[in-house]
Design a protein around this nucleic acid. Structure first.
Lengths: 332, 332
DNA sequence: ACGATATGTGTAATCGGTTACATGTAATTT
DNA sequence: AAATTACATGTAACCGATTACACATATCGT
């Protein structure tokens, strides 16, 4: 592979001039520029990233840390992020932490070490100290689907509260009178807010009682168990809002097992808007703009990397109600 | 961050000795080793990967190229690969190509350029020239779920032919007499072999006719459409083997729409063994050992990177029949 | 006892870039 | 016309490792 020296020799200039040309900083005459351009083209020269990085520049690499790539939500995030990163000629390192704080910590060390230019973190176990650690190392961080109060970390979140309200209102509009809720882990901000949204609406109904809320864990199995519990306590419920799509799917399984038909007997809505076209009935949901969030995360991260100023440290994205079969009025 | 110089100074030895100690090559006295170890510990020194790479060493980075991270098969692959890579202290770069040959080619160039130590490729559009290109650059490659005849590329594949037979035999054992097949893209080796497996068994049945095979594309929608077509042509079919789980899910949707019950009226089996617990009924499948394949891919790749010799260039993995609700005899 | 081999260590070149600094010329001010 | 300022380029130090080579000492075989 040709080096900058080869280029400089053939173009009859010094390496410094070539470097200036490449980085578009400092002065380079038109004449020199033309000569260099021609040689670069002829040799098909590409600067060596590694050498560049060593000389104090960026590594053109960002990392995406996700808690569980097997949860269909995160491949969608990964896909969006990867796309956007590519557009900036950044390479994306995938870090799957399995919700394991140790793995998380190990990754942070590794990434500092690999000198990634920035990190997008989606984690429910991350601690402020860890983020401060990264900031000390001057590595920009974007927090996704999470928010640490008081810190000066950029965080991106959907309007979960509003989404919770939307979902519950929708069930109400579809004629549900007794609406249960399967909530996600309570230590997760976004999860809590969805539940808050539910409560605001559900409490307006006479039927409301705290035992209409079942606590679960964002998994299919968890949703299944929570639904069984709800059926037992409230055999007459006619609507369920699950805080994510996976739990909604679990809930539907439990309902079908109990010979309750969805949507005829009970209507079910989820949250997230992940691709689940394989389901039947297809699940109504409150969709997050996942692609947009991923893209914005990268856009903002790149700004931080380049030292540009950021307007807002907390960005909220609007969610969208997507009505599918699981809440339609005319039963399928 | 401390450098090798800091360590050498504090330990009272030269940088060469420290480097020898770190790489366990050349001679280092016990005394020097102890001193160095202590200083490294005290400073929490970690060698700078970038400098290392520049000095001709490896980048400790491997890439995983997948056609579509949104297809649940690939997050599972990614997860396995990432796990294994981690165990070797390698970092994993994720490359999502969207089945787009141009993106693929662009990624190959980028990866060569980033000097990744090796690449695991899962692609149905990759061309032998591209792999040769990589080999010329001395970058080891592992081909996953694909096989290019005649080339000296390591390739890993499940026993698709056997899997196709297993699936079809299973349907037969469950009492199916007229078994249809939804096949995947015919230009994909693994897909063709599954279909071959089906044919061997299905042709033993009197009911067999070529129009029992519907051609599709590995997607849920594709499976749905193919199933509709099959129902039309063969209203009396009682078993369907779909070449992957997504198409099986699509088929089930189509059957339910046509008021045919799964598994009572028609039994359905898929292929892959991806996590689809959200389905109801849960889908029987011929499971590939995805985790093992991913791990083997990394193990083998690391061997190639280290210049170790490889025994077999084509490795086949056995598949396993997983019976779930969609083919059980006692209807749920 | 003496060359050969094994052990241990340091100096300096190298990987392929970036960039501070020196230097020189051309254009602009005053 | 002298003093600035803008433009243009090259030399060489530097980023943080690896490693060829030179050199020194210890151990060994005969």
């Amino acid at each position: 592979m040709p080096t900058i020296k080869d280029v400089s020799k053939l173009a009859g200039v010094s390496v410094a001039t070539v470097s200036r040309y490449l980085n578009k900083n400092g002065y380079v005459s038109q004449q020199a520029a033309d000569a260099i351009a021609e040689v670069i083209d002829k040799l098909n020269y590409k600067p060596n990233n590694i050498a560049r990085s060593l000389a104090g520049m960026k590594t053109a690499t960002i990392a995406l840390m996700v808690p569980d790539i097997l949860n269909p939500f995160f491949p969608e995030v990964a896909r969006a992020t990867e796309d956007a990163a590519n557009a900036y000629d950044y390479t994306l390192i995938l870090c799957n932490t399995d919700n394991n704080p140790e793995k998380e910590q190990k990754y942070i060390e590794t990434l500092i070490h690999k000198q990634v230019d920035g990190i997008i973190i989606s984690s429910y176990t991350i601690k402020p100290e860890q983020l401060e650690h990264l900031q000390k190392r001057k590595i920009p961080v974007i927090l996704m689907d999470n928010h640490l109060s008081g810190s000066s970390i950029v965080s991106l979140m959907s309007n979960n509260f509003n989404g919770g309200k939307l979902a519950t209102e929708h069930l109400q509009n579809q004629g549900c009178r007794k609406i249960a809720h399967i909530c996600g882990p309570i230590h997760i901000t976004s999860s809590r807010e969805r539940t808050n949204g539910y409560e605001v609406i559900a409490k307006q109904l006479d039927s409301f009682t705290p035992s209409l809320i079942a606590y679960s864990d964002f998994t299919v199995k968890g949703g299944y168990r929570a639904m069984q519990e709800l059926i037992q306590k409230h055999p007459d419920l006619d609507g369920v809002f699950a805080s994510n799509d996976l739990m909604a799917a679990g809930a539907i399984k439990a309902l079908q097992k109990a010979n309750l038909s969805v949507p005829t007997d009970v209507k079910v809505i989820g949250f997230d808007g992940i691709q689940m076209e394989m389901m039947s009935p297809e699940i109504s949901t409150v969709a997050q703009p996942i692609y947009e969030i991923g893209k914005t995360a990268v856009d903002t991260l790149v700004k931080l990397i380049n030292g540009d100023s950021i307007e807002t440290y907390t960005q909220t994205f609007e969610v969208e109600l997507q009505v599918k079969q699981s809440t339609s009025i005319q039963s399928k």
